[in-house]
């Protein structure tokens, strides 16, 4: 029987993909003009999100690329100082295929950068483009990571599959496409703020009454994200909405990972639908 921390009925994970200029630089674009979306994240969007989290008194998890962390160390340190978590998100937002050697090098490089700047090693990772290689989680486990949050395949945490086997030391904490604010919402979808708030609320209402597991991923950028004032307000309104429900527990990702890794809490038995997953 699965149990959430604090005897909660629903756990809520507020996560941010900070995606500063490294995203564009990785694609070979100058982070200028219409491609300066990421600079906004460091200058305005992320500080705005942190102000919201402080006002709401909730913990959050911010995924940072290694390059972006090098460019904005003071932001990484502010996130930690305010009680949130910094997790890893590629070096230059590699959302393309890299060789296994290059992948290994970049995972370690980003790990060292964040560890050095934050003063504490990252415990989680999310793939910048959603893809992984057969070795990704093995390298991360070796570096001490407790969770991956790249998949979108289950309403709740489950044992991560490391080298083809369900791990007893690493957990997958999946994210949800419908509560992601990037391309399909504010980019390709060109949805308005009220439509997106409705979409997020609808998703939360359904998950609160079923899996008791809700995660949202907001980007603090200008476009393809929620950094601008009206869109950040959607995030805050969503938080207000969630708080109206009884027995909700907001958690940092690593705290939930540690909780789930304790077999007594019922998450480490491979779910049947995922048992044979490679």
């Amino acid at each position: 029987m699965k149990q959430w921390p604090n005897g909660a009925r629903c756990v809520v994970l507020i996560t941010v993909d900070s995606d500063v200029t490294g995203n564009e630089i990785g694609k070979g674009l100058d982070p200028d003009g219409a491609n300066a979306l990421g600079a906004y994240s460091a200058k305005r969007g992320l500080p705005r999100f942190l102000d919201i989290f402080a006002r709401q008194q909730i913990p959050a998890t911010v995924f940072f690329g290694g390059y972006d962390a090098e460019q904005s160390p003071e932001l990484v340190q502010r996130i930690i100082a305010e009680g949130h978590e910094v997790a890893a998100h590629g070096y230059l937002h590699e959302s393309w295929d890299v060789s296994l050697e290059e992948e290994d090098r970049l995972l370690r490089k980003t790990h060292e950068i964040i560890t050095h700047i934050a003063g504490t090693p990252p415990l989680g990772w999310r793939s910048p483009g959603g893809q992984k290689s057969a070795q990704t989680l093995a390298v991360l486990r070796e570096l001490g990571y407790l969770y991956d949050s790249s998949d979108k395949d289950f309403d709740g945490p489950y044992p991560a599959v490391v080298r083809g086997e369900p791990s007893d030391a690493m957990v997958e904490i999946p994210n949800i496409t419908s509560t992601l604010d990037d391309a399909y919402m504010y980019g390709i979808g060109a949805m308005s703020t009220d439509e997106i708030l409705d979409l997020f609320k609808e998703e939360f209402d359904a998950l609160y009454h079923t899996a008791g597991y809700f995660i949202t991923t907001c980007h603090s950028r200008s476009g393809r994200g929620s950094g601008l004032p009206a869109r950040a307000r959607v995030l805050e309104r969503l938080i207000d909405h969630i708080k109206r429900y009884p027995d909700v527990h907001f958690s940092r990702m690593s705290d939930l990972a540690r909780w789930c890794l304790d077999p007594a809490h019922g998450f480490m038995q491979p779910a049947t639908r995922l048992g044979g997953r490679k």
Binding site: G33, A34, A36, Y40, S222, G223, P229
Partner: peptide, 10 residues
């Protein structure tokens, strides 16, 4: 005297 292309500030 001005550019009006960037999206990096309020």
């Amino acid at each position: 005297r001005y550019d009006a292309s960037y999206c990096d500030d309020d």
